[in-house]
Computed example of a mutant assay.
Amino acid sequence: MGSNTDRSPHYGALQDVVDGLFADTCVEAVRRLDVVIAAEAADLPADLSEVISLLPPGTYTRLRLCDQINSSIGGHAWGQVYGTVE
């Protein structure tokens, strides 16, 4: 990858993981383990797997999960490369 502003082919991959976890409108929260399994199933690149591995144990609403993921992405300055989640 050239720089931290070049879009990765994996841009939006974390959004797909989040959308999949909350696809059922009845789901109000997910466990960290659910997120890790979904990320592994998505075959994410190492950088994005690292973002997921940094999640602290616990239960996450969509908003809390997005905040945690976006915080990690921002901390690595990867927003332009991989995108943020909502």
Rank of each mutant, 00 (worst) to 15 (best):
D16M: 08
S49P: 00
D6A: 14
L63E: 15
E50S: 12
A23Q: 13
E50P: 00
D19A: 13
D43K: 12
A13Q: 11
S8F: 01
S3R: 04
P45I: 12
S71M: 04
P56N: 11
L54T: 02
R7G: 02
V30K: 08
L44I: 06
V35E: 06
T25Q: 14
V27W: 06
D19R: 11
S71H: 11
S72W: 01
D24E: 12
D47N: 07
S49M: 12
C26E: 12
V81M: 03
T84R: 14
R31H: 12
T61A: 13
Y82H: 11
I73V: 15
E86Y: 10
V81N: 01
I69H: 01
L55G: 05
M1E: 09
A77Q: 12
N4E: 06
Q80M: 12
N4V: 07
S49Q: 13
S53T: 09
A41R: 13
I69W: 03
G83M: 09
V51I: 15
A39L: 07
G20C: 08
P56L: 11
R32M: 09
S49T: 06
A77I: 00
A77C: 08
L55M: 07
E50V: 00
G12Q: 09
G58Y: 04
C26M: 07
D34G: 08
W78G: 05
A29Q: 14
Q15I: 08
S3C: 12
G74I: 00
Q68R: 14
V81Q: 11
V30L: 10
D34A: 13
Y60I: 10
E28C: 04
V36G: 02
D67K: 11
D16N: 11
G74T: 03
T61P: 08
V18S: 10
T25R: 14
I69D: 04
A77E: 14
G2I: 07
E86D: 15
L14S: 05
A77N: 13
L14R: 01
D67G: 06
T59Y: 06
I73K: 02
V17Q: 05
V30T: 09
A23P: 00
A23K: 15
E50M: 04
E86S: 15
E50K: 04
A39C: 08
L33F: 08
R62P: 02
G75C: 06
E28F: 01
I73A: 03
G12N: 08
V36Q: 12
D67R: 14
C26S: 10
D6V: 14
Q15C: 05
D47W: 00
D43S: 13
